[in-house]
């Protein structure tokens, strides 16, 4: 398989990363090299094998339903790019 420039632009948009045309071309070559490596996987018949998502076969531990976190807005917003009246500001969202 081979990724086209449109593929690169499509996934870059999905990933919200601006990619210029020159970058897309360059990235495309590198990604195609990497996907050539990845394609080796397709040679193996894995029918009947259960996908492995976690290293350990353990189940989720549940947290007791209790409020444990205090208000730390001041500390958290001290590192924010733009805030006002306790809110994080972003360019106008149109619904």
């Amino acid at each position: 398989m081979s990724l086209s420039l449109e593929d690169i632009q499509r996934i870059a948009r999905l990933a919200r990363i601006r990619v210029t045309e020159t970058e897309a071309a360059q990235t495309g070559d590198q990604l195609n090299g990497i996907f050539k490596l990845i394609e080796q996987m397709q040679a193996v018949d894995t029918s009947g094998v259960a996908p492995m998502a976690h290293a350990q076969e353990v189940y989720q531990r549940l947290r007791e339903d209790a409020v444990t976190e205090p208000n730390r807005r001041e500390a958290f917003q001290a590192i924010a790019p733009q805030t006002e009246a306790g809110l994080y500001l972003v360019p106008k969202v149109i619904e």
């Binding site: 990724l3 593929d7 690169i8 996934i11 870059a12 999905l14 990933a15 990363i17 990235t27 990604l31 990497i34 996907f35 990845i38 996987m41 397709q42 193996v44 894995t46 094998v49 259960a50 996908p51 492995m52 998502a53």
Partner: peptide
């Protein structure tokens, strides 16, 4: 970009699931 691609619609089984099986 690689990660976005392998998880995107139509490629998930061939890449992500196959990789998890391997």
């Amino acid at each position: 970009l690689i990660g976005t691609y392998v998880l995107s619609h139509g490629y998930y089984d061939a890449y992500y699931i196959q990789a998890q099986k391997l």
